[in-house]
Simulated scan of single mutants.
Amino acid sequence: MIRTLQPGQRCQVWIASITGESTLVYSTDDMLLEAPNWTLDGSSLILNGDGKLWTLDVPGDSPAKPVEVPLSGIPDLNNDHVLAPDGTSIFLSANDGHIYRAALAGGPATRITEEDGTFHFLHGVSPDGKELAYVGIPAGDFTQPGRLMTIASDGGADARVDVASGHCDGPEYSPDGKWLYLNTESFSSIPGHAQLARIRVDGSGFEKLLESDTVDWFPHLSPDGRFASYIQFPSGTEGHPADLPVAVVLVSTADWTTPLHTWPLFGGQGTLNVNSWSPDSGRFAFVAYPISDSTKD
């Protein structure tokens, strides 16, 4: 299903700095954009919206506007997309449950995953570009927990990485390729209580990164490995729903327990689903979805 804005709601694309500043770079009430990536040359953000892929130039002398990437041979997109390390192509999850690869310049997309009765939700690509990490869910049955899976980036057999029985999401490779970072419910008996964790790519060393009362999703490491961003949902949240008070958090990877900066906002789904760090590790992007209070107009 393609997400749309509610009456009175806006989509705001923000860029935050590791020093704590944040800048609104684009705002619209026409289209709901989600899940920014940052291109390798540092010039643009890549987002999905209305089932399509868009580029949004990082502001310069004139206001930025989204430009559609002309893709073919792929169904409507969801918000799971990750740039390939070559900087010229992108891996995409579509609403048919499959993962595709396409050029950032546009053109035909190539399907990677097979018809195996599973929906494939992409989140990570290894630093050498040879492997993808995704969450596999039995097609049509979202009551079942997501499983951490890997597959060669050109397709073939997939493999499961055991992170116990709890639902997991957001698996993403560390910059050195040694770890997969994710959120998981395997450390809690409370429904929906996701916490941040990591596991070595060989399946060993599964560990929780911090313990909190909030529901924590989507850890994203900066390219230099020094920082991470993630999104906090309120205690008691199940899944990663849209349209509620959340917070985007910045931490040092040397100490996940102490936030360096926090950005409260109205959002959730679409705000920070995929890695949105700039190539220089100094900034990252996120999306907010504020709704006006008509009683105050």
Rank of each mutant, 00 (worst) to 15 (best):
L56P: 00
F227P: 00
N79S: 15
G166W: 00
S93V: 07
F233L: 15
S22K: 15
H167V: 03
R3C: 03
A103L: 13
L244I: 14
T39W: 01
G267K: 05
G166V: 00
R226W: 04
G205P: 08
G87K: 07
L5D: 09
P85V: 03
N275R: 06
P290W: 09
A164W: 05
G282K: 12
L56A: 05
L209Y: 09
D86E: 10
E21H: 10
V161H: 02
P264Y: 01
A16N: 06
Q232G: 05
I2R: 11
Y26N: 07
S189E: 14
R101T: 14
G268I: 02
L272V: 02
Q9Y: 05
G8E: 08
V163N: 07
D128H: 05
P245Q: 11
N183D: 15
W38R: 01
E114D: 14
G156F: 04
A228H: 04
G177A: 10
F142T: 09
P241R: 03
K208V: 15
G282W: 00
S22F: 02
N79V: 05
G42M: 07
F233N: 08
A197T: 06
L24H: 05
V82M: 12
L56V: 06
L47S: 03
G73D: 12
P175Y: 03
S72M: 10
V248I: 15
T110D: 11
S292Y: 01
E211A: 15
W54T: 06
Q195P: 02
Q232D: 14
P7V: 10
S93G: 15
Q232M: 08
R200A: 15
S281G: 00
S235Y: 08
P241N: 09
S212R: 12
T55L: 08
A242S: 15
T113F: 04
T19M: 04
D297L: 11
P219E: 07
P245L: 09
K65N: 12
A102R: 01
D57T: 10
D243I: 10
I2P: 02
D29N: 14
C11L: 02
L182S: 05
L92V: 06
W54E: 05
L244Q: 15
M149V: 12
V215M: 11
D202K: 08
S229Y: 05
T110V: 13
V249M: 11
T262P: 00
P75L: 14
L265A: 03
Q232W: 05
I291N: 00
